[in-house]
């Protein structure tokens, strides 16, 4: 049979989001897209549009203000999708760990498929990570994608809906129910 799944691997479109990083890793991501490392030879396009992308590249330790946007972007991406955490601070908090204004890593909020360590990560590692993510992307089936509860109810005051702090931590849902 004509298998559409194998084409997923050949045209990964990337969405890049900065959840409060120091910009070190963002520069490395741009470097890996630029002529020297040329990620485009794998068919990668940096789309910037969540509705048309397959790979979610996140940098940064998730500041309090970026949580809702992170989850929003994740939910706006159509299945199948993979998430790559680029940089130590994105994986665990890194140099920002235990600071008062950040969460420790994006996996507190969204499921992550590939972790790339390094502060800052080198473009070679990013390319390795993307290639690894493509293997995962090919294996993903629609059944594997379980709906996750990522938001809690928005509060409303005087009829004005306040969507600040609606992002839900992984594990928080069990404590509430």
């Amino acid at each position: 049979m004509f298998d559409l799944k194998k084409y997923r691997k050949k045209s990964p479109w990337i969405l890049h989001y900065n959840a409060g990083s120091c910009n070190g890793c963002d520069i490395e991501i741009l470097a890996s897209l630029a002529p020297k490392y040329d990620l485009e030879r794998f068919g990668v396009i940096n789309t910037g549009n969540p509705k048309q992308s397959d790979i979610f590249l996140v940098t940064g330790p998730v500041t309090y203000r970026s949580r809702e946007r992170l989850v929003e972007l994740y939910t706006q991406m159509p299945e199948p999708k993979v998430v790559i955490a680029v940089g130590s601070c994105t994986c665990t908090g890194g140099v920002f760990r235990d600071m008062y204004n950040v969460e420790d890593g994006i996996d507190r909020y969204i499921p992550v498929d590939v972790y790339i360590a390094g502060c800052a990560v080198s473009p070679e590692l990013i390319i390795d990570g993307v290639v690894k993510a493509l293997e995962i992307l090919e294996k993903k089936s629609k059944e594997m994608e379980k709906a996750l509860k990522l938001f809690k109810e928005a509060t409303s005051e005087n009829g004005v809906i306040n969507r600040r702090n609606v992002a839900l931590k992984v594990g928080e849902v069990h404590e509430e129910n």
Partner: peptide
């Protein structure tokens, strides 16, 4: 891509994109 001195995607890349898009959730 060649003008920018890099390798660039394969010639059939637009069709790969197309087949991938069929398989995506809409």
């Amino acid at each position: 891509a060649r003008m920018q001195n890099r390798q660039g995607p394969p010639l059939l890349q637009p069709f790969y994109d197309m087949f991938k898009l069929i398989d995506k959730q809409a």
